[in-house]
Every structure is written in C-alpha cells, then in structure tokens.
C-alpha cells in the first residue's frame, strides 16, 4: 500500500513537472523546425534556423532588447541608490515622524504603480517623459520593497562598527558606503535578481507609457509581434518568444540557486 502511494506520488510529481516544462519545450520544438512540423511531431523533422532569422527580421528585437536592458538597469540603479539612503535613515536615525514615514513607504507594497496607470500617465505626460526610458523607470525608483528589505538588513549591522567608523572620521555617506553596503551584499543580490526579473517581465505600465520602438521593451514588442492580426505563423512566434526570454532564461539557468534563494529571502523578509 505504502509503495503504491509512493509510486503514485512520484508519478504525479513528474506529470506536473512535464506539464510545467511543456510550453517552453514546445516553443523550442516549434522554433527549430520548419512551420509544417509545428503540430506534427517526428524524430526526423529537419532542423532549421530559418524561424529565428525571420522573427529577427520581422520585429526590431535588437532595439527592444536594448530598451529592456536599459530600462531594467536604469530602474535597478535608481532603486539601489534611493532605497539604500532611505533604508539607512529609517533603520538607524532618530527623527521626528519616522513612524509615519515608514507607514507611508509600506503603503506602496500594496498600491503598486500599475494600479495607478491613469494618473501616473498624466503626470509623466506633464513632465514630457512619455515614450522615454525615464518615463518607464521613474515610478519604480522608490521601491517600498527595496527600502523595507534593506532596512531590515541594516538593523542587523552591529552599531559598534558604525561608531568605530565615526571615530575614524568617516562622514555619514562614507559610513553607509563602507560599513553598511558591504555587509548587506546578499540582500542586494537578492533584491537585484527579483527586481531584474520583475522589470524584464513587466508589461502593463510600459505598454501605457511607450508609443514607438524608441523606448518599447521586449514585452510590449512581443504583444504586437504575436498579435494574430499580424499574420505571423506559430513557428516564427515561438522563435520570437525564445529570443525575448533567452537572456533572462540563460541568466536564470546560470544563477538558479541564487534566484531561488533570492526569491525565498525576499519573500520571507
């Protein structure tokens, strides 16, 4: 009996695993074979790179990819700087209204910028930032999640280290840079991986705020590319999909352990 349940359990685990992997495997299958094999599975189907070449020609993937990388990096850089400064103030400085400020920060954990697309669009239109990298990035700079995560980490840094640095004559910024930042490296890595994968995949806000391929990221590009009315066939869409997820997927496979641990750490707080 126990062996039977064990067998059933293992079988279910693998069935689920296959289903979960299947869309990606299928996309690879369709992308590397000629279109007539999109729904015909044969071991002898000829391999081809043609789908990738056509996908690459039909949409400005290189441009989209540059945009995505630029936006993701801009957001990450902004977040790291702003969140570090704010997190230090909230973790280690006594000042009037700290509790209120912290509560205001935490509000953003729930009310993410995507929900406020209407007003944020108006704001950015007023700043003349529609269809620019800055327009996509700016609402995400002050990440409540980043501030919270770093504040928790900074609170665990022994105060003696800070006092020693003070005696050495370090300025406030030097203390943050030389004492706190190095000690919080794992948190920075965790936050960076979560942030990169979030913004690489983000869609709704970039869709609203970008108009041309000048600033359009991969996700928005893919939504136009894949639209049925554009008349592109499945093999080419699959190839395009793989091109769009490729860099992130490679990053994920290389750093799988860190990814999983980062998501865990970020989730547990």
């Amino acid at each position: 009996m126990s062996r039977l349940t064990h067998f059933v359990s293992v079988a279910m685990a693998w069935i689920l695993g296959v289903i979960w992997f299947f869309p990606l495997i299928y996309a690879i299958w369709a992308a590397i074979h000629p279109p007539e094999f999109a729904t015909k599975f044969s071991l002898f189907a000829p391999l081809t790179m043609q789908n990738f070449i056509e996908a690459w020609d039909q949409a400005p993937f290189l441009r989209y990819m540059i945009n995505t990388i630029a936006i993701t990096m801009l957001i990450l850089a902004g977040q790291l700087v702003l969140c570090t400064l704010a997190a230090y103030a909230l973790a280690r400085m006594e000042f009037f209204g700290r509790g209120v400020i912290f509560a205001l920060v935490l509000m953003q954990l729930m009310v993410v910028p995507e929900i406020l697309i209407v007003e944020n669009y108006q704001t950015l239109a007023g700043l003349n930032l529609i269809d620019t990298y800055w327009g996509v990035a700016l609402p995400y700079f002050a990440s409540a999640f980043g501030i919270f995560l770093l504040r928790q980490t900074f609170k665990t840094v022994p105060e003696d280290l800070e006092n020693a640095a003070k005696i050495e004559g370090c300025s406030l910024l030097a203390i943050i840079w030389k004492v706190y930042v190095p000690l919080a490296k794992p948190t920075y890595l965790a936050f960076s991986l979560v942030s990169i994968s979030y913004h690489w995949n983000n869609f709704l806000w970039p869709l609203v705020v970008t108009n041309t391929e000048k600033s359009r990221p991969l996700t928005v590009g893919m939504s136009i590319f894949g639209a049925p009315e554009s008349g592109v066939d499945w093999s080419i869409i699959s190839a395009g999909t793989l091109i769009s997820v490729g860099p992130l997927l490679i990053l994920f496979i290389l750093f799988q352990r860190q990814f999983v641990q980062s998501f865990m750490q970020a989730g547990i707080k």
């Binding site: 994968s197 995949n201 869609f203 869409i237």
Partner: peptide
C-alpha cells in the same frame, strides 16, 4: 514559469 514574461508565454 515564474521567471518567464507572462506576455511571451501567453503567445505559446
């Protein structure tokens, strides 16, 4: 699936 963009996999 968690690390893949919703938009891209929706195409599949």
């Amino acid at each position: 699936p968690t690390v893949l963009p919703m938009i891209s996999v929706a195409n599949i």
